[in-house]
């Protein structure tokens, strides 16, 4: 297990380094970026930039210095908002995005698993068809489309819930719903198919032959095994939710990191783009790592397999 963890950890660092390097050199190639001569920024901003990115030094030195500051979690100043640094922006926007993402992920996991299990237990029944219809629609309708439809119907036509900003739970309902539907659908389908497969396994028959109640068979024997494949996709689902926050925050005018990120893209605020990309990548790669560890802990076969291999 430890050997495996170390290996995964090193792969994680390499991926991160790749992303940092990629962003650095991509930004270097761009006209109008902080590294380029043709920038058109105010005096004050320019001085900030030069100081942070060591623009007077040769490129390799800039790269090393840049790596150093990234490791220290310092992403430099914003171009457009002269008095702000990327770190301040992250500090302000991230908690909001984190809340949105966490609530969404929780809703998606809980409802997705429930839906998938119900569908599998009532295989080819009405509940199954209904759950799978919801799932297919959830996968097919892009989150930004669903978000706008929700605004149009629920907020504008029916006036049930507020449209924009992030103040009370009522503000959270629509964005969460829009963002959670896709991942929920994926989890529901995956849970259903893996549950169906697990239910045909011999050990389920063994459990039945013991005379256990159906509830015990499902909860104790089937569910844990059926959820193992679901755990493996959590990382990529989290990635989907994270990128989803970009559009959802833009649509619902939520002052989160996603909204700042989209604004920075449209304003070509390069330090913000770089900083956010690296920050998000770190977060996601770390999440993938956590998911792997969790999987190893949940499935006894993996953990001990590694031990024996040593």
């Amino acid at each position: 297990m430890t050997k495996y963890l170390v290996k995964r950890f090193i792969a994680m660092l390499i991926t991160l380094w790749l992303i940092i390097t990629l962003t650095f050199f991509l930004m270097h190639a761009l006209p109008g970026s902080p590294f380029n001569e043709e920038r058109s920024t105010s005096e004050a901003v320019q001085r900030n930039l030069e100081a942070h990115f060591n623009l007077d030094k040769p490129v390799p030195v800039q790269y090393i210095e840049y790596l150093k500051s990234v490791i220290q979690f310092d992403f430099g100043p914003s171009i457009k908002k002269s008095s702000q640094t990327v770190n301040e922006l992250l500090g302000r926007g991230f908690p909001v995005s984190f809340e949105l993402g966490l609530v969404t992920l929780t809703v998606a996991i809980l409802s997705g698993i429930t839906l998938g299990v119900l569908a599998a237990l009532r295989h080819n029944g009405i509940i199954d068809y209904m759950a799978m219809t919801i799932a297919v629609l959830g996968i097919s309708i892009p989150n930004f489309v669903f978000a706008t439809l929700l605004i149009q119907q629920v907020a504008v036509n029916w006036e049930l819930l507020p449209v924009a900003t992030w103040k009370s739970w009522r503000h959270m309902v629509l964005p969460t719903l829009a963002l959670a539907t896709g991942p929920m659908a994926i989890i529901a389908r995956l849970t259903r198919s893996s549950m169906l497969e697990v239910l045909t396994q011999d050990y389920i028959l063994t459990a039945k032959a013991k005379g256990l109640t159906p509830a015990k068979i499902v909860l104790k024997h089937a569910l844990k095994n059926a959820l193992l494949p679901v755990v493996t996709v959590l990382g990529s689902l989290a990635a989907g939710i994270l990128t989803g926050t970009f559009v959802i925050e833009k649509i619902f005018a939520i002052p989160g990191m996603g909204k700042y990120f989209v604004d920075s893209i449209n304003n070509r605020d390069y330090p913000v783009i770089m900083g956010t990309t690296i920050f998000y990548s770190t977060l996601l790669i770390f999440l993938l790592f956590l998911v792997d560890v969790a999987y190893g802990l949940l499935d006894p076969r993996i953990k001990l397999h590694r031990k024996e291999a040593k």
């Binding site: 792969a11 994680m12 390499i14 991926t15 790749l18 992303i19 990629l22 962003t23 991509l26 990635a239 989907g240 994270l242 990128t243 970009f246 893209i265 783009i273 990309t277 998000y280 990548s281 996601l284 790669i285 993938l288």
Partner: peptide, 13 residues
């Protein structure tokens, strides 16, 4: 390593 890169984030970049 490529698989570890977040797809849409790379696309955006």
């Amino acid at each position: 390593i490529l698989y570890g890169l977040p797809y849409l984030l790379v696309v955006i970049l």
